[in-house]
Nucleic acid binder design. Structure first.
Lengths: 200, 200, 200, 200
DNA sequence: CATGAATGAGGATTCATTCAT
DNA sequence: TATGAATGAATCCTCATTCAT
């Protein structure tokens, strides 16, 4: 008898609408009423689906993170050799960043502001952590097999790679989408490949 | 007469105090009273030196940008050949980013939030613009002289380099200062050099 | 036909559930959804039986008041002489207060808050009015027949007696149910009896 | 150079203005803006002097309680014998209740609503506790010296007396100020005296 | 010049009530 | 009849900015 609503689905719709507004206006400049308007619902309805503003972001982040984690696992399970594994990894990370660009933009803002706020209920360090561990392992393998430069510090290289990932996001965020995303990916892969791998 | 000196000096002191608080708490979470307390002055006094909150940041940014521009000019005037010029440029950019790290962190937050706000009175595009123009010119020179890979798109490479610059900042901002800044610089330079330059 | 019975019965069930929640949480702190949950029904169903929140309380109050009025009449019809009539009256009032303690608690809160709100659709003055009139009459009778202290102002005594009634409620409300209700009643009756009646 | 304001004095002025509004409108129905208007200040200024709404009430309550405690001590130090001590005590309590009538009204509402809310930062039990302990001691003394009825339970009598105190407050709150406060006090004292003391 | 007391616009959140199913 | 999803009015509280001293 009561109205039947797919709570899960509506939660996602609202979260997506919110993310769009966050990306356009910025998280802090976005009012709850803006989100409601973007989702085509009333202000109070938001609170039927989310505890508060931060909770909306958290929900979006979880989705983003789940997809990232799953993609990472897929790559690791598909490739075995260090070189193709590393390239596939970088390729995946770049694709993911480009595909989830809107999300990334918002998280950059949120985390850069909430930095020292202990109340922040979720964090990027999970992504960084998993990514860096995986990279260090691959680079060590490649160095032992002689495929990679032996002189480079695996941790430093990993850090640099992750930084590049961040950089792509940030740059697109600040400078607009200057160049084609595929060109960017090709160029980046080329440079990395040469610098990191072709060391004869 | 000494009053005029004092005014300028105090403006800088306040701006620096503000920047420290911004870095710790985030721009949006920082209250004017926090800045006043950090600067050791009264809340109302802030408005004797700055028009408003954003104006404080703008002042800091101008200083940061002036130093960057001057350093850029110095590099360009000192080096002539494409390869050493590019390396010097990247070296300078990394050094600058690392030295002005606190500023960078705050600008990341501010610009990522205020992105589409037309009221924002200053922007990063100036930095990106000048940097990218310079890079594209150098890379074209290097490609013509045969020093650089001819197959790479100069604009894409420039974009990638600037992205790396952003990435360094962002990563240190989010992930903490994992590795030593000098190691990071060495590694980055090495990779870039190999990938971009060693193309026999 | 059975529907009509059900409606009345369910109205009472809801009202009782509501009163329990009111007593525990306080009228203002109780949300409609709390009442619905306590009554084991849906939020919207409440409005099938009651116009609004205040209406639920009003319904409960009417029941409470009806029982009080009927009890008062019974006492007055049973006893004739001033002294036993007064004692029976006080005894009844105390018993009623103790028995309907939960209700009393809620009305104290509601009336003390809504005091000067003209929208409040029901009030305690009815109870006070009937009680005080009855008392004044009895005390006058007792004074004329020489049974009571002649020097006391009948109105003041009535007021004091009603105040005591209030006090019992309020004290139990605030201080918890310190002593046994029967002990309290005995003690109160004893003191009143001595003070008011034994005037040799 | 800055405006010099007696914070303590203004705090009291605001608290008094608030209490008047609380008494008229009820605590829960009073909006912060009402208090501000009554105090002749802006909404935001309230928060310069008080943390929140409850804090305003708490401040008023502390003043009320301090005066009560001090008065209680004075009575106990002045009188020695049970009978005059008890009478002085009751007299003081009644006077205090009548003098602080507005406060009492508000506390009745507040405590009757916040009853089971653990966040309530202050309570009536302090008053009840100190009052009841004092009374029990006096009554025991009076019973041992033969001045008071030996048959009455000291605790029950104390409870009754405190209940009367509550009743006076509550009744004036609900029924208006029917009779003259002095008449009420005289009558109450008379009855109590007869009932409790004249037991030949 | 310096100050902090005063302010009110602005925004997050709650919850009684409505109403489509 | 029963329901709970949807709503927006209402209200607390924050904080950038003003201004009297």
């Amino acid at each position: 008898m009561p109205k039947i609503i797919d709570k899960k689905e509506k939660t996602q719709i609202i979260s997506q609408a919110a993310l769009t507004v966050f990306r356009d206006r910025g998280y802090y400049r976005t009012r709850m009423v803006d989100i409601a308007a973007a989702a085509g619902i009333g202000k109070g309805t938001l609170y039927e689906y989310f505890k508060n503003k931060s909770d909306i972001l958290q929900f979006a982040f979880e989705e983003y993170f789940d997809v990232f984690s799953q993609g990472l696992l897929d790559v690791l399970q598909t490739k075995d050799e260090p070189t193709p594994k590393l390239i596939a990894l970088i390729d995946f990370a770049l694709s993911h960043a480009v595909e989830w660009e809107d999300h990334c933009m918002v998280y950059v803002e949120y985390f850069s502001s909430a930095r020292s706020d202990n109340n922040v209920p979720f964090s990027l360090s999970a992504i960084y952590g998993s990514m860096k561990d995986v990279l260090v392992t691959i680079i060590r393998e490649g160095q032992q097999s002689g495929e990679f430069h032996g002189s480079l510090d695996p941790v430093a290289v990993s850090e640099m790679l992750v930084s590049m990932y961040d950089g792509i996001i940030l740059h697109r965020l600040f400078a607009g989408r200057g160049i084609d995303r595929d060109t960017l990916r090709e160029t980046t892969l080329h440079v990395l490949k040469s610098g990191l791998l072709d060391h004869r």
